[in-house]
Amino acid sequence: MLDLLRGPWPWFISGPLLGLMVPLLLFTGNKQFGVSSSLRHICTAIFPLKADYFKYKWKDYLWSLVLVAGTIVGAFFAVVFLDGDSAPAVSEAAKSMFAQWGLKEIDGILPAEIFSVQNLLSLPTLLMLGVGGFFIGFGTRYGNGCTSGHAIMGLSLLNPGSLAAVISFFAGGIIVSNFIIPLLLRL
């Protein structure tokens, strides 16, 4: 059993399991699934921010912070006990693209050549993590949701605003992955 769990999970197992987040949270807590609002609650909880956006009782949303704390623990567990850090079996087309990008090996969750702590001070890495992270925080709050809240929860509700958001997520991602990442990796 444990060996089975340690191996790569096929999409038709992991996809439906991700979808189960929707009924799990609705039934147990009457909460709609979403992750990015936790970033706002963290800001409100730890910084003395004067803007109206941060004037609310963050403790009312403690459940969201507990959920993401659990996510950290679960990920740790998956890496330590379920071989979660193994390389994904990406397609041949993707492999040759990564080779073209100058990445020597496809191993782990993130390419060590870019994201290892030793390489943190290189320009591409700082741009990818610093600017990318900023876009994630700013964009998910401006767009009022992320892949969890809009793509999984919002589309499950057949919510038109969520569909618009998801189309935009992919438009933005396709542009950057095709035109910006290859340039950054050449820096």
Binding site: G132, F134, I136, N144, T147, G172, I175
Partner: peptide
Amino acid sequence: NTLGGLIFGFGWALTGACPG
């Protein structure tokens, strides 16, 4: 939703990660 979504999409591709 569209502009914020687009900006988040940029970040998703740059970092390879969304908030979860």
